[in-house]
Design a binder for these strands. Structure first.
Lengths: 189, 189
DNA sequence: ATTATCTATAGATCTATAGATAATGC
DNA sequence: ATTATCTATAGATCTATAGATAATGC
């Protein structure tokens, strides 16, 4: 049953990957270790060879998801310096992102849940948020850096809140309207 | 052990009240029926005389919390027509609200969770959101009603996102900065 | 020999129900 | 007689651990 160190490291990554999707889809307390391991193609008992606890995995999976977001935002900024804000906002507030919880921004799907977690998860959320704010600070309009950072924090809040509200309501038109309103306001000036 | 009809109705309200607080504090899947009943001063088994299921309570508790929010916002609008927006934003984005999850806006604490619930809860969230948007539509600046409604939806999103992010991070200064940024931006124009 | 994974299980907790109890309200 | 609540429990699920197994890597 034993596998190579390389394969074990790969398995660990698969667990983190599965957890990143399932936590976002179901919430930290809405999915169990056994289901995550099953999604990763492994058995329940093997989990504790890789992680100290479910909380430990929650922190690591959160970090992994946020690192990917930061890389994606930075890449958009680098590749499309002229219209990066528009691209990010359109992508973030798209119907596709709203409907695909398991692969969307973790602050929308798990931000409120993170507040209920221990220090490691909340530390991961703080450190994971900073690079996104840094990208937005470059992109939003404003005379001074201080003014742009303030605008960036407000814009990030608006993105997160819009996706949360658009998902919470069961009325499709209302949901679309919520996304469209923030899209229009964020790209207005 | 049996109590009067009046007392039973009162007990039901106590359960809904306790659930409204505990769900906001712990999430829909972070608290059990037994704990809610204990908080209400009743025993576990008695629950199913009042509600069909935990989901049933989740929908009813959500409606109750949102009805109270709507009443509070409408009261602020009525009593302070000149500076209601400022009052609402200052209250919503205060450190006190951030730190008191169990009595704060349900969209921030349970919005993401609601997306994972069944139709009744999501219907409650849609119907509960509308009156808050209506109040904001009166308060935000804008030439036309259409423009004001768009601004209101964007403002609500920003409020919800700011409180979610401020709670998710473990860095107190960063958290305060998130709240201050949205406060400043929302009251700028 | 070491160790990554598996099987099996302990012990706690969760939702929901059955049946008993005792006070209300006809 | 009805019914609101209680006690007790069924059955499922959850986190975590113990010990067995078998392939890796010295």
């Amino acid at each position: 049953m034993r596998v190579s160190r390389e394969k074990a490291a790969e398995n660990r990554e698969t667990i983190v990957e599965a957890a990143g999707s399932l936590f976002r889809e179901k919430g930290f307390s809405g999915i169990g270790v056994a289901d995550i391991m099953r999604a990763a193609g492994l058995t329940h008992g093997g989990f504790y060879g890789h992680f100290k606890s479910k909380d430990d995995l929650a922190a690591e999976a959160s970090r992994a998801v946020m690192a990917r977001s930061a890389a994606s935002w930075a890449k958009t900024l680098e590749e499309h310096p002229d219209n990066a804000l528009e691209l990010l906002v359109e992508r973030y507030l798209s119907a596709k992102m709203r409907d695909d919880r398991s692969h969307s921004c973790i602050f929308g799907s798990l931000g409120a849940d993170a507040a209920r977690q221990g220090k490691p998860v909340r530390k991961a959320f703080a450190e994971g948020l900073r690079p996104l704010i840094d990208v937005l600070t470059v992109l939003v309009p404003g005379a001074s850096k201080v003014a742009r950072r303030r605008k960036a924090l407000a814009a990030m809040s608006q993105l997160v809140g819009a996706i949360v509200l658009a998902r919470a309501v069961d009325d499709a038109d209302f949901s679309d309207e919520i996304l469209a309103a923030s899209k229009a306001e964020l790209l207005r000036d």
